[in-house]
């Protein structure tokens, strides 16, 4: 039996009391009345917002480093990792005098995410070796035109004076996991396989 709440159906003649139905109706009305005074499940949305999970996967952000330079180096790993092929980018070389804008010598001059294609899986975040792209708890707003869903660098890169907090998802364990992953392709066996071997 899958559940302990199921009852075996028996087709038996109803007694007179059952056929009058009034006791059953009164019992039902007692149940509905008890719900009248119960706490309501509704959340008054614009006034009250339900808390998001700290690792909610919403609209992406391209992070800057502490000095304010863009972290992204246009390696394209996020675009490769993306199962929905939502990310496109064009790489450019950093010119002299742009050191305060871009951290590495190569940067993305165009970086676009198509929010209609994106499935918010977070694989771009996993793939990024530079801690540049993160998903945040912001919801992608709806618009009337398809073109407006293609987010360029103007919407994705965080503002210098208005940083996006991602500390809740970039915990120590996450960092260690990513550090391990970085050299995983050099290893012949994974740690687990090694342990099993010995």
């Amino acid at each position: 039996m899958l559940t302990n709440r199921s009852e075996v159906v028996v087709k038996k003649e109803m007694s007179l009391l059952e056929r009058i139905y009034i006791p059953a109706i009164l019992a039902g009305m007692r149940i509905t009345l008890s719900h009248f005074f119960k706490r309501k499940a509704t959340v008054n949305y614009p006034e009250v917002k339900r808390p998001f999970s700290p690792v909610y996967r919403g609209q992406h952000v391209l992070k800057r480093d502490e000095a304010g330079a863009e972290r992204c180096t246009a390696c394209g790993l996020c675009a490769v990792a993306c199962p929905a092929e939502a990310i496109t980018m064009v790489a450019s070389e950093r010119k002299k005098g742009e050191e305060n804008l871009y951290r590495e010598e190569k940067y993305a001059s165009i970086y676009e995410i198509n929010m209609l294609r994106c499935i918010f899986c977070g694989l771009c975040e996993d793939a990024c070796p530079k801690e540049a792209i993160f998903l945040t708890d912001r919801i992608v707003p709806s618009t009337f035109k398809r073109g407006e869903f293609i987010y360029g660098k103007d919407k994705l890169v965080e503002k210098v004076d208005k940083r996006v907090d991602i500390s809740k998802r970039q915990t120590q364990t996450v960092l260690e996991f990513k550090q391990n992953k970085k050299f995983a392709h050099n290893r012949l066996y994974t740690d687990k396989q090694l342990k099993e071997k010995h």
Binding site: T32, H35, F36, K38, R39, K40, A41, T42, N44
Partner: peptide, 13 residues
Amino acid sequence: KIAAFLQDRLGPN
């Protein structure tokens, strides 16, 4: 309102 309250909702507010 009564329908909502009997169904654990808030109704028009």
